[in-house]
């Protein structure tokens, strides 16, 4: 069985893939979900999400139970003439999908509401807009587990 962190990240991927208009969201961002994407978004990969679990910090321990704060960064990218307003919708969709169950199926204790998000607009051949959202997933493991 996969370790807790892997299970949580699998749940994050599955959850982000739920972001489709058919599921009641404003965008189809969930059609292009990538983990630790190493290459630039291509035209056919947008709108898309890339998510990364770069940092995991232990912040408390009680009786051999260790509580972790897993930092997950979510990047959104899209391009076209309505990219800016589209990204605002995508940010709202990401918040909404996280909020459907902030324990990730009982794997985590909770997920902290992001304190901020950040948008960027770039201009090359097309209008390109993106956003970064950071969330913190709190979960617990036994001694020497992660």
């Amino acid at each position: 069985m996969a370790n807790k962190r892997q299970q949580i990240m699998d749940a994050v991927k599955a959850r982000l893939q739920n972001i489709t208009v058919a599921n009641g969201y404003m965008t189809n961002l969930g059609n292009n979900v990538y983990e630790w994407k190493e290459t630039a978004f291509a035209e056919n990969e947008m709108p898309g999400i890339d998510y990364r679990d770069a940092l995991c910090e232990r912040f408390s321990s009680v009786l051999n139970r260790f509580r972790w704060r897993l930092s997950v960064g979510i990047e959104i990218a899209t391009q076209n003439s309505t990219a800016v307003s589209d990204v605002r919708k995508m940010i709202a969709d990401v918040y909404k999908v996280i909020g459907t169950d902030d324990t990730w199926g009982g794997l985590a204790i909770t997920t902290e509401q992001p304190e901020s998000d950040e948008m960027r607009v770039m201009k090359e051949e097309r209008f390109i807009a993106g956003a970064l959202i950071g969330m913190f997933i709190i979960y617990e493991t036994s001694l020497w587990e992660n």
Partner: peptide, 15 residues
């Protein structure tokens, strides 16, 4: 011309 900002990178061109 790659468009990159905030760690977000997108393939593009500069016509």
């Amino acid at each position: 011309a790659a468009a990159a900002s905030l760690g977000i990178e997108v393939e593009s061109a500069r016509p």
